[in-house]
Structure formats: C-alpha cells, structure tokens
Design a protein around this nucleic acid. Sequence first.
DNA 1: ACCTCATTTACAGACTAACGGTCTGTATGT
DNA 2: ACATACAGACCGTTAGTCTGTAAATGAGGT
Lengths: 219, 219
Amino acid sequence: MARNKYPEETVELILNTAARLFTEKGFDKTSLQDIIDETKLSKGAIYHHFTSKEDIFDKICQRIGAANSERLAAVRDSKDMNGLEKLRSIFRSSMLHPNQERIAEIIPRLIDNPRILAIHVKMQFENVAPNFIAPIIREGIADGSIQAEAPEQLAEAVMILSDIWLNPAVWPVNREDMRKRCEVFRSITRSIGLDFLDDDVVEAYVDYSDAVLNNQSNK
Amino acid sequence: MARNKYPEETVELILNTAARLFTEKGFDKTSLQDIIDETKLSKGAIYHHFTSKEDIFDKICQRIGAANSERLAAVRDSKDMNGLEKLRSIFRSSMLHPNQERIAEIIPRLIDNPRILAIHVKMQFENVAPNFIAPIIREGIADGSIQAEAPEQLAEAVMILSDIWLNPAVWPVNREDMRKRCEVFRSITRSIGLDFLDDDVVEAYVDYSDAVLNNQSNK
DNA sequence: ACCTCATTTACAGACTAACGGTCTGTATGT
DNA sequence: ACATACAGACCGTTAGTCTGTAAATGAGGT
C-alpha cells in the first residue's frame, strides 16, 4: 500500500501500538521490529511519520500530557468549587477513573521502567504542580478554604508524595501498607492545611495497589 | 599486556571510569567503546571481569550502596545519640559530606538520567528507608525523642521528600525556591514529630542547589 | 464536470554503521 | 603445565538512512 488516504490513522496505529509495547516491555526492550511486526507496517512508514524511536516516545508522552492537562484545566477553571473542593475533585477523579483497571493489567512497576518513571516525575514537576495544583492552592488560600503558605512548593510536595509514593503503579504494596501510607499522607496534608483525601478515595488506592500486586505475582 | 599481577586494579579502573561516564552521559549513551577508549583496555578485559554492561552498572550501584549503608549503619547502631539526634546527624552528614563538590561538578540533572534516577529511588525504598530510617524512628519513638506512628511509612515519606524533591542533583532550583522547599519540608516534618533539619543544613542544601544550577548553565 | 498529467505524499524494503556480547587466541604469572 | 588476564576478530541485532514506487492530489485544459 502506498499513499494512504488517511495517514492520521497510521500515526494513531503507531502511537497506540508503541504506547502499549513501551508500558508492557519497557522502552529499551521494545525494538522497532516489534512495532513493525505488531502494526504490519514497514520501517519506511514509521520513519516517514517519526524521526526516531525517541520521537515516538515523546509524542506519546505529549498526548498523555495533553489529555491530562485538559482534565486538570477543566477542574482548575471551574466556577462551581472553591480551592479545597477542586483539590478533592482532582484526587477523586484520578483514582476513580474509568480506565483504572486496564492500567493495572498492563503496567509493570514503573520503578522497573526507568524511562517512564522519569517522564512521569518530570511531568509532575514541570506541568501538573506549577500549572494546576499550585494555582488551585493559591485560589484556596484566597477564598479561605486552605490555610497555607508557599503554594508552589506545597504543590510540588503533594504531587511527589501522591504521584510517586502513593502511586501503586510505581511501587505496589499490600493492602495494609497502602492504608498506612494513605494515613501518613493524610496526616501530613492535614497538618499543612490541605485535607482533601476522602475515605472512599483511600479505599480506591488500596484496591488499586492490591490489583497491581496480584497482577504482577500472576506473571 | 596479558595476565596482569593486580587484576583488582583493572576492575577498579573499569568501575571508576564507567561510573564517571554513566553519570556524565547517562547509561544508554555510554557505549562499551567509550569505556574501552577511556580505560585503554580491550573488550576481552572488560568481559573477563563483568558479564555485561548492565553488570558493570549493578556493581557500581552495589559499591555506592555498600558505602552508603556503612555510613548509615554506624549512625543507626551508635550508642551516643537518641533517635532524633541520629536523624539529625544523618541529614547533616549527607549534606555536609566532603565529596559533595565533586558530585555537583559532574552530575547532570538526574531527571534526565532515568536509569540512575530509578536506582536512586529504588535504593531509598528498598534499603535506606526500611533498614535505617525506620529503625531510627522506631528507636526515637521508644526513647521519647520522637512522637509519631507508622515508622516504616514515615521513613518512606521522609526519604521521598528529602532525597528526590529536596535533592538538588535530581532537579536543581535557584536559591530562593530551594529555601522555600526546605521551609515546607521543615513544616511537614515538624508537624509529624520529626524536627531534624537544622538551619546550617538548609543553607548547605541551598548552596548545593545553586552550585549544580550554575554548573549546568555553564555547559 | 471531467480528463490529463506533473507533483507530492505515504509508504516498502534493502542497506549501513554501531552496538552489546561471544569466542578463540596468546602471553604471563603461579 | 596450567590457570588467569587479557587482546581483538567476529556475530547477530539494533536504530536509522536511502532509494524506489504507487496512490492521492491539485492545476490546467476541454
């Protein structure tokens, strides 16, 4: 086949396939041949749409980042909630998200997938914390729902703790340990004026961690 | 040259050279040829002492981990301090360590060196937190110098925050931001019964961060 | 509106350089 | 003599390049 009418579909196919393989096997252990085999495309096709394997990875990250930003921006710019409620909403939706189960099935411990871990950490620092969490905390301080100082640094600390330490995809633990982690996280956030983790969200964290753990031991 | 009298020196040469190259250029971008060129050894020599490039990396990590563990164990097992004093001592010595300047000269942002970042995170989770920080917190709770619960989880939280977020090697920031981070870290640790970061240690963090930042902009 | 044809685009796949790793050969210490 | 510490040719696989080709497209004439 030459000169496809709908090249966007080819791009999508490459991105989707590569994303799956990268999360399943890791970036290094996914070869271009793997992508070629799974997509039934040719090297020429892939290098026509992307400049390198790295480029494919970057584009996948951009796509995920954009989807994530959109979700967060909707909450941040909402007029119906105060600062604290927005924080609560974000953590609620990220944990009770519909595609949660699928992720638990696929993802290996991110700690064993350095590339994905690093980009994950980077996104928290460069995008999520400064552009979404910090403004919301600032809003919360202004509207009186949050008592705190240094919103930028608080946002960073909260995201590091919740998105790396509490994140079961990074390092899953058993139910009890996860519950204890959540409790410590709550006592920390409460003490700095940010009490936004609800009981049912904690349970979702615990369930998710357990699911990832079980899925791994099955392999 | 064949059949060297002192093969340990060859092993050391390989480990030291590889460690430097891995931190300078990253694991992936350091080729065996680079190591061969810099050591003036041959492929045969390297594969005689190591089974793979990965193996070299692992041995480097083990060496660093062992040195680190030794330092931490000495504090943990000391009879002259209570729990809180031990924590204080650890953070003091890790920041005011003699080889600090050398590291600042070499290291790129760990966030751009995924492999090293991942092993760094892993060591905190698998070794430092459970084997050293948690026991010390437990001791502090027992001797009354620390008021807290869940020492294992607290240890994890403290190490995540201090060794990733506050660590200038991971993500250096300017002096003001670093100072703010330290302040937030202090308010967090204080609130959970762990006030162990002294003013002069904060200044060391700030200086270190600034040094790493300046060094990078020079490149 | 329809046909023509040059041009651009979306691929296919042979080819290349560099990589990690293996294997055989060799000199030197024990 | 034998084991050890190398040296370096060799191999399969990898990411990335380059050339070839067929289908879509857009401009110009009818």
